[in-house]
Each structure stands twice: as structure tokens, then as C-alpha cells.
Amino acid sequence: MSDKEKSRAKAEQAKGKLKETAGRAVGNERMTAEGRAEKAKGDARQAKEKMKDVFKR
């Protein structure tokens, strides 16, 4: 996995988790949903990069 994409995925996951937690804390359902979506996007990016690594070998 390229370092740039790996760090990008981790950052997206962390940002999503933070937004989801903040949304739950203040009772904002929209923010919670947006956070979940960002986290899922980061998860998907990370999975894509891992698959690239598997097929390179």
C-alpha cells in the first residue's frame, strides 16, 4: 500500500469516527451519519489499497 494512500485512508477513518462521536454527543443525527459515511469511505480506500498489494505479488 502506498504510504500516501494509507495515511489518507487512516485520516479519513479518524475524521469520520470523530465526527460520528461528536454527532452522538450533541444529538445531531445528520453529523453522526456523515461521520459514519466518511469512516466507511476510509475503510473502502484502505481495502482497495490492500487488494492492490495482494495482486502485486
Rank of each mutant, 00 (worst) to 15 (best):
G42R: 03
M51C: 03
S7Y: 13
V26T: 03
D43Q: 06
E5P: 03
K19L: 12
F55L: 15
K41A: 12
A37K: 14
K17L: 04
T21K: 07
K17T: 08
A37P: 09
D3K: 13
T21P: 01
S7E: 15
S7M: 15
R8K: 12
E38K: 15
Q46W: 12
Q13V: 13
G42I: 10
E34G: 08
K50C: 11
M1A: 02
K48S: 10
F55H: 15
E20P: 10
A14D: 11
K10V: 14
V54I: 15
Q13P: 05
F55D: 14
K39W: 06
A37Q: 13
E5I: 07
R30W: 02
E29I: 05
R45S: 13
K56R: 15
E38L: 14
A33V: 10
G23S: 01
R45T: 05
M51I: 14
E49H: 00
Q46P: 10
K6F: 09
E38H: 09
Q13I: 15
K15Q: 05
G16Y: 02
K4V: 14
K52N: 03
M51H: 09
R24M: 10
G42T: 05
V26D: 01
K56H: 10
K50Y: 04
R57F: 12
E38T: 11
K50L: 09
K19G: 08
A9Y: 02
F55C: 11
E34M: 01
K39P: 04
G35W: 00
K48E: 14
A11T: 12
A40C: 08
K4S: 11
A14R: 09
E38F: 11
K52Q: 09
F55T: 15
M51D: 09
A14I: 15
E29L: 06
K10I: 14
K41W: 08
G27I: 04
G16I: 03
A11D: 11
E38D: 13
A40P: 06
A9K: 03
S2F: 07
R30S: 06
K52G: 02
V26W: 00
K15G: 01
A44M: 12
K15W: 01
R30K: 11
V26Y: 00
D43Y: 13
L18V: 07
E12Y: 12
A37C: 06
